[in-house]
Each structure stands twice: as structure tokens, then as C-alpha cells.
């Protein structure tokens, strides 16, 4: 499950803006396979956490109504250029991924 996350983090003044794109099907569990007619099982990210210096600055709780290949953006204070930022997600099947990036 490597490389599911693309991230951009930029600091301006005291505000760091984080933008992330995650590759994930975000299946609702309601769609049917058009050939077999069988339901496609639910498969969606439930939690995304962004940490800076051991502090969870934002925790996103997601349901299946978040779009396929989800996008998340937010802002926080108290970080400096070059600081490390960690973003990780976990889905309803227990799969997960994370990425570390330096704030630009």
C-alpha cells in the first residue's frame, strides 16, 4: 500500500496549509458489479490523522460519502519551514498508509 498519498505543505507567516490527495476506491457498499450483479463490499477510509511534532493537529473522520481518491486540505499554526509533517490513514478493512513530508 505504498505511495497512496500525495501531499503539499507550505508555510506562510505562522500558517501552514496542507493539501493531500489519497488514492482509494471509497466504495460505499451500495454499488453493484454491473456484470455479476453482486454488491461491491464497502471499502472506505475512516480516519486520517495529521501530526506535527507528536501533536495530532487534525483528525478527519470519514464516511463512504467522501469521494473516490479523496482530497483533504486544512491549515494550522506553529510550524516552521523544514519541519516534518506526518499524514496517515486507516480504512474499514484495517488497511493503512502514511507519508512524511517537509514543510516548504
Amino acid at each position: 500500500m505504498a505511495n497512496t498519498i500525495k501531499i503539499r505543505a507550505r508555510v506562510s507567516g505562522d500558517t501552514t496549509t496542507v493539501k493531500a490527495l489519497i488514492s482509494h476506491p471509497m466504495e460505499t457498499g451500495l454499488r453493484k458489479n454491473s456484470k455479476t450483479g453482486e454488491k461491491i463490499p464497502a471499502h472506505f477510509i475512516q480516519e486520517v490523522v495529521c501530526e506535527h511534532k507528536g501533536d495530532a493537529v487534525l483528525t478527519a473522520q470519514w464516511g463512504p460519502a467522501i469521494s473516490k481518491n479523496p482530497y483533504l486540505s486544512f491549515r494550522f499554526k506553529g510550524a516552521a519551514k523544514g519541519d516534518t509533517l506526518t499524514l496517515r490513514w486507516v480504512d474499514n478493512k484495517g488497511e493503512s498508509d502514511s507519508i512524511e513530508t517537509q514543510i516548504a
Partner: peptide
Amino acid sequence: SAYVMSPRAEGFVATRIK
């Protein structure tokens, strides 16, 4: 979706929904 904000988070989130 719901976003739990730490004291350092600013009042802003963006995402894409169905």
C-alpha cells in the same frame, strides 16, 4: 465527514463529497 481540530488547527477544512 467530521474533523476534530486541535487548538493549533485553524478553522478551515476542504474535501470532496458524494
